[in-house]
Amino acid sequence: MTSIKIKNLNAYYGEKQVLKEINLDIGEKRVTAIIGPSGCGKSTLLRCINRMNDFIDIFRAEGEIDIDDKDIMQMDPVLLRKQVGMVFQKPNPFPKTIFENVAWGPKIHGTKDKSTLNKIVNNSLKQAALWDEVKGRLKDNALGLSGGQQQRLCIARALAVSPEVILLDEPCSALDPVSTAKIEDLIVALKKHYTIVIVTHNMQQAARVSDNTAFLLNGDLIEYSDTDTLFETPKDKRTEDYITGRFG
């Protein structure tokens, strides 16, 4: 149900155009990867989907992004972000307890009942494969967790407001290989329930976790297809150059 349709999207930082005529259909309950060299606009594209770019004064976007056939450009960003969760490049837990981190989202959205909150926290931590590691110390400060644990906590925090879409902005770039593997497993498990869009500079990661892959270069969408096709038989010369490591 929750498919995302991006139509004729153009985006600018001041005078500089950073996304050019992007048209992209993102399928529901699939993992879609966006790859490309740094500065190609992949993070900007991702942040358009939950309008995090609104905070940048000089940013401007034109075009349409439909989620369930509703244009998010016309939506209230607060409601939009409840529906579209996000996990950032560097783990950014709140300087609060583990419990408070996960319960914070549901609380601001109006869940007050203690036992409901407990249930949400438990489920979210389990879904994020963190429960077993933290169940005895939910009252500890989240900043005491390791980097990998913090990132899974941030995923649990995003899941707790029951979004339909989850955006992952290079979620493993600050993590060690073991933590990265855990998060990749988690992404594959989560697609049963959520539509996932992941930005990554790591092509192996895109190949491992995603169903579809989009390749961006200098703000242009060069190629978009299912992941196997894109990596094995790319149609565009530039895609081939990039995935074979000839540049970027």
């Binding site: 996000m86 989202g105 601001i108």
Partner: peptide
């Protein structure tokens, strides 16, 4: 940003 992304 983490808080905004949760719809705060």
């Amino acid at each position: 940003e983490g808080a905004y992304a949760l719809g705060a």
